[in-house]
Computed example of a mutant assay.
Amino acid sequence: MKILHLDAAITGENSVSRKLTADITAKLQARNPAASVTYRDLNEGVPAIDGAWFEAVRLAPASPSAEQQKLIGISDAYLKEVQDADVLVIGSPVYNFGITAQLKNWLDQIARAGVSFRYTESGPEGLLTGKRAIIAYTAAGTPLGSDLDFASGYLRHMLGFMGITEVEFVAADRLAMDRDAGMARAQQALDQIAA
Protein backbone atom coordinates (compact mmCIF):
# COMPACT_ATOMS: atom_id res chain seq x y z
CA MET A 1 0.00 0.00 0.00
CA LYS A 2 1.22 3.48 -0.92
CA ILE A 3 -0.19 6.36 1.12
CA LEU A 4 -0.12 10.01 0.07
CA HIS A 5 -0.50 12.14 3.23
CA LEU A 6 -1.42 15.78 2.57
CA ASP A 7 -1.84 18.57 5.12
CA ALA A 8 -3.22 22.00 4.29
CA ALA A 9 -3.78 23.75 7.64
CA ILE A 10 -2.01 27.03 8.38
CA THR A 11 -2.20 26.56 12.17
CA GLY A 12 0.84 24.34 12.66
CA GLU A 13 0.92 22.25 15.83
CA ASN A 14 -2.51 23.61 16.87
CA SER A 15 -4.14 22.06 13.81
CA VAL A 16 -6.83 19.48 14.46
CA SER A 17 -6.78 18.33 10.83
CA ARG A 18 -3.03 17.63 11.08
CA LYS A 19 -3.62 15.52 14.19
CA LEU A 20 -6.37 13.60 12.41
CA THR A 21 -4.36 12.97 9.22
CA ALA A 22 -1.50 11.69 11.37
CA ASP A 23 -3.91 9.39 13.25
CA ILE A 24 -5.47 8.12 10.02
CA THR A 25 -2.07 7.45 8.46
CA ALA A 26 -0.87 5.69 11.61
CA LYS A 27 -3.96 3.47 11.59
CA LEU A 28 -3.39 2.54 7.96
CA GLN A 29 0.27 1.78 8.66
CA ALA A 30 -0.56 -0.32 11.73
CA ARG A 31 -2.78 -2.53 9.60
CA ASN A 32 -0.35 -2.49 6.66
CA PRO A 33 3.20 -2.52 8.10
CA ALA A 34 4.79 -2.57 4.65
CA ALA A 35 2.92 0.56 3.59
CA SER A 36 5.01 3.47 2.36
CA VAL A 37 4.05 7.09 3.02
CA THR A 38 4.73 10.16 0.91
CA TYR A 39 4.12 13.31 2.93
CA ARG A 40 3.47 16.77 1.53
CA ASP A 41 2.68 19.87 3.56
CA LEU A 42 0.69 22.05 1.17
CA ASN A 43 1.12 24.98 3.55
CA GLU A 44 4.74 25.16 2.41
CA GLY A 45 3.37 26.58 -0.83
CA VAL A 46 1.60 25.25 -3.90
CA PRO A 47 1.82 27.62 -6.86
CA ALA A 48 -1.51 28.91 -8.11
CA ILE A 49 -2.15 28.23 -11.77
CA ASP A 50 -1.99 31.30 -14.00
CA GLY A 51 -1.45 32.28 -17.63
CA ALA A 52 2.15 31.09 -17.62
CA TRP A 53 1.04 27.72 -16.20
CA PHE A 54 -1.66 27.43 -18.86
CA GLU A 55 0.84 28.17 -21.64
CA ALA A 56 3.31 25.59 -20.28
CA VAL A 57 1.17 22.78 -18.90
CA ARG A 58 -2.13 22.89 -20.73
CA LEU A 59 -0.89 24.04 -24.13
CA ALA A 60 2.24 21.82 -23.84
CA PRO A 61 4.58 23.52 -26.32
CA ALA A 62 6.87 21.21 -28.29
CA SER A 63 9.96 23.08 -27.09
CA PRO A 64 9.19 24.49 -23.64
CA SER A 65 11.44 27.20 -22.24
CA ALA A 66 13.38 26.63 -19.02
CA GLU A 67 10.68 28.48 -17.04
CA GLN A 68 7.95 26.40 -18.71
CA GLN A 69 9.86 23.20 -17.94
CA LYS A 70 9.94 24.24 -14.28
CA LEU A 71 6.15 24.77 -14.22
CA ILE A 72 5.55 21.45 -15.99
CA GLY A 73 7.86 19.68 -13.53
CA ILE A 74 6.02 21.06 -10.50
CA SER A 75 2.63 19.98 -11.81
CA ASP A 76 3.97 16.58 -12.92
CA ALA A 77 5.45 15.96 -9.44
CA TYR A 78 2.11 16.61 -7.70
CA LEU A 79 0.31 14.41 -10.20
CA LYS A 80 2.82 11.54 -9.99
CA GLU A 81 2.37 11.40 -6.20
CA VAL A 82 -1.36 10.87 -6.74
CA GLN A 83 -0.88 8.40 -9.58
CA ASP A 84 1.48 6.33 -7.43
CA ALA A 85 -0.78 6.34 -4.34
CA ASP A 86 -3.34 3.74 -3.37
CA VAL A 87 -4.78 5.89 -0.56
CA LEU A 88 -4.86 9.67 -0.20
CA VAL A 89 -5.14 11.05 3.34
CA ILE A 90 -6.07 14.71 3.00
CA GLY A 91 -6.34 17.28 5.77
CA SER A 92 -9.06 19.76 4.90
CA PRO A 93 -9.75 22.44 7.48
CA VAL A 94 -12.65 24.70 6.55
CA TYR A 95 -11.68 28.35 6.13
CA ASN A 96 -14.49 30.77 5.29
CA PHE A 97 -16.85 27.88 4.45
CA GLY A 98 -14.55 26.31 1.84
CA ILE A 99 -11.27 24.49 1.37
CA THR A 100 -7.94 26.21 1.92
CA ALA A 101 -6.27 28.11 -0.91
CA GLN A 102 -3.36 25.68 -0.76
CA LEU A 103 -5.61 22.67 -1.24
CA LYS A 104 -7.43 24.41 -4.11
CA ASN A 105 -4.08 25.18 -5.75
CA TRP A 106 -3.08 21.52 -5.42
CA LEU A 107 -6.34 20.37 -7.03
CA ASP A 108 -5.81 22.86 -9.86
CA GLN A 109 -2.28 21.49 -10.40
CA ILE A 110 -3.47 17.88 -10.74
CA ALA A 111 -6.74 18.41 -12.65
CA ARG A 112 -5.30 18.01 -16.13
CA ALA A 113 -7.28 17.08 -19.22
CA GLY A 114 -5.88 13.98 -20.86
CA VAL A 115 -3.88 13.04 -17.76
CA SER A 116 -6.15 12.91 -14.70
CA PHE A 117 -9.42 13.10 -16.65
CA ARG A 118 -10.58 13.11 -20.24
CA TYR A 119 -13.65 14.14 -22.17
CA THR A 120 -15.52 11.42 -24.03
CA GLU A 121 -18.68 11.32 -26.13
CA SER A 122 -20.61 10.37 -22.98
CA GLY A 123 -19.02 13.07 -20.81
CA PRO A 124 -15.93 13.43 -18.61
CA GLU A 125 -14.11 10.33 -17.40
CA GLY A 126 -11.72 10.26 -14.45
CA LEU A 127 -8.37 8.58 -15.05
CA LEU A 128 -7.11 8.28 -11.45
CA THR A 129 -9.21 5.21 -10.68
CA GLY A 130 -8.66 2.46 -8.12
CA LYS A 131 -7.76 4.85 -5.31
CA ARG A 132 -9.31 5.71 -1.98
CA ALA A 133 -9.40 9.11 -0.28
CA ILE A 134 -9.87 9.73 3.43
CA ILE A 135 -10.52 13.37 4.27
CA ALA A 136 -9.88 14.83 7.72
CA TYR A 137 -12.53 17.55 7.70
CA THR A 138 -12.29 20.11 10.50
CA ALA A 139 -14.34 23.22 11.14
CA ALA A 140 -14.93 25.63 13.98
CA GLY A 141 -18.57 26.14 13.12
CA THR A 142 -19.46 24.53 9.80
CA PRO A 143 -21.17 21.14 10.20
CA LEU A 144 -20.13 18.54 7.64
CA GLY A 145 -22.78 18.28 4.93
CA SER A 146 -24.70 21.38 6.02
CA ASP A 147 -25.90 24.13 3.70
CA LEU A 148 -22.88 26.17 4.83
CA ASP A 149 -20.37 23.43 3.96
CA PHE A 150 -18.93 24.27 0.55
CA ALA A 151 -15.79 22.22 1.23
CA SER A 152 -16.77 18.55 1.46
CA GLY A 153 -19.04 18.48 -1.58
CA TYR A 154 -16.44 20.27 -3.69
CA LEU A 155 -13.71 17.87 -2.59
CA ARG A 156 -15.88 14.83 -3.26
CA HIS A 157 -16.80 16.21 -6.69
CA MET A 158 -13.25 17.12 -7.73
CA LEU A 159 -11.79 13.80 -6.61
CA GLY A 160 -14.63 11.93 -8.30
CA PHE A 161 -14.20 13.96 -11.47
CA MET A 162 -10.64 12.64 -11.62
CA GLY A 163 -11.76 9.05 -10.91
CA ILE A 164 -11.33 8.85 -7.12
CA THR A 165 -14.85 7.90 -6.11
CA GLU A 166 -14.17 6.07 -2.83
CA VAL A 167 -14.14 9.10 -0.52
CA GLU A 168 -14.62 8.97 3.26
CA PHE A 169 -14.71 11.77 5.82
CA VAL A 170 -13.41 11.86 9.37
CA ALA A 171 -15.05 15.04 10.62
CA ALA A 172 -14.26 17.12 13.68
CA ASP A 173 -16.80 19.87 13.10
CA ARG A 174 -18.52 22.52 15.24
CA LEU A 175 -15.35 22.67 17.36
CA ALA A 176 -16.04 26.23 18.50
CA MET A 177 -19.40 25.17 19.94
CA ASP A 178 -18.33 21.96 21.67
CA ARG A 179 -14.75 20.87 21.04
CA ASP A 180 -15.03 17.64 23.03
CA ALA A 181 -18.12 16.53 21.10
CA GLY A 182 -16.49 17.41 17.76
CA MET A 183 -13.38 15.42 18.62
CA ALA A 184 -15.53 12.51 19.81
CA ARG A 185 -17.36 12.46 16.45
CA ALA A 186 -14.02 12.41 14.66
CA GLN A 187 -12.72 9.58 16.82
CA GLN A 188 -15.86 7.56 16.16
CA ALA A 189 -15.45 8.07 12.40
CA LEU A 190 -11.76 7.20 12.66
CA ASP A 191 -12.60 3.97 14.52
CA GLN A 192 -14.92 2.99 11.65
CA ILE A 193 -12.33 3.55 8.93
CA ALA A 194 -11.33 0.20 7.53
CA ALA A 195 -7.57 -0.04 7.28
Rank of each mutant, 00 (worst) to 15 (best):
V89Q: 05
R174E: 14
I74S: 11
K80P: 06
L88E: 09
E67F: 04
L6F: 05
K80W: 03
T11E: 03
D86E: 12
F97D: 08
D180W: 00
K80V: 06
I49A: 09
V37Q: 03
G12F: 01
Y119G: 01
M177S: 15
S17E: 08
V57S: 14
Y154M: 13
I24Y: 03
R174H: 08
Y119E: 04
D191L: 09
G126R: 01
L190H: 12
H157S: 15
D86G: 11
M177H: 11
R132V: 14
I193Q: 11
Q109F: 03
S75P: 02
A30L: 10
E121D: 15
E125M: 07
K27I: 08
H5A: 14
T138W: 01
T129P: 06
A171S: 13
L59T: 11
D180G: 11
I135N: 07
D50C: 12
A60K: 10
A189P: 05
S65G: 12
Q109P: 00
D84Y: 01
N96H: 09
S116C: 06
E67D: 15
M158T: 02
L128W: 04
A151L: 11
A34G: 15
A9D: 09
S17N: 05
E125R: 00
V167A: 03
L190F: 12
L20G: 13
A60D: 14
S15A: 07
N32L: 06
W53V: 10
P124G: 12
P64C: 04
D108S: 06
Q69D: 14
R185L: 12
D108H: 01
E166I: 06
A176G: 15
S65I: 07
F54K: 09
A172T: 04
G12C: 03
S63D: 15
D149Y: 05
D76Y: 00
P64D: 06
L4D: 01
E13K: 10
M183H: 13
Q187G: 12
D41K: 02
N43W: 03
E166C: 10
I72A: 09
P143S: 15
S17F: 06
S36D: 13
A34E: 11
V37I: 06
Q83I: 03
A101P: 00
M177K: 10
I74W: 02
R118T: 15
R40L: 10
K19G: 08
T142C: 11
S92R: 00
T165Y: 00
E67I: 03
A111F: 04
D178Q: 11
A172G: 14
N32R: 00
L144R: 04
S146Y: 03
G114N: 09
P64N: 07
